[in-house]
Amino acid sequence: MNISKLILSFILSITLLTQASWAQIASTEALFKQTETLSSKDKIIQFTARQDVAKILAQMDVEPTMIKDRVAAMTDEEASKFANEIDTLPAGGDAVGALIGAVVFVFIVLLITDVLGLTKVFDFTRTVR
């Protein structure tokens, strides 16, 4: 067992223990789930989802000092969605950078569709309608 696994299991055991001490209070979570308390298994899955999110953010060149805050700001559902669907989730950004790499054909097609009001890629176009 390497150090990181040791740390992981240590943090995990603390998380589970502190959760267990509130066991008698039925949580608000019960309103959104079929079962009213999360099983230990669910907690482990969600905990590893957060670990995955941290890893993905690091791989995707996110500033390392921000990773902890960013992971903490997500709910469990958001963290799971992030970890499981990162490859397919859309990321809203600017069109400009992406367009530089586009070939002339794409440029012209999108220019025409812009004018027809089917798309809005370019800021300088006005639709004919």
């Binding site: 953010l57 791989q59 995707m60 060149d61 996110v62 960013r70 700001a73 997500m74 709910t75 958001e78 969605k81 992030f82 990162i86 989730l89 859309p90 990321a91 809203g92 950004g93 600017d94 950078g97 992406a98």
Partner: peptide, 16 residues
């Protein structure tokens, strides 16, 4: 910002 994605995910927009 996620530099490798060139943008922001919906979940992080909400979290932020």
């Amino acid at each position: 910002l996620i530099p490798a994605k060139g943008g922001t995910l919906q979940v992080e927009l909400m979290a932020t």
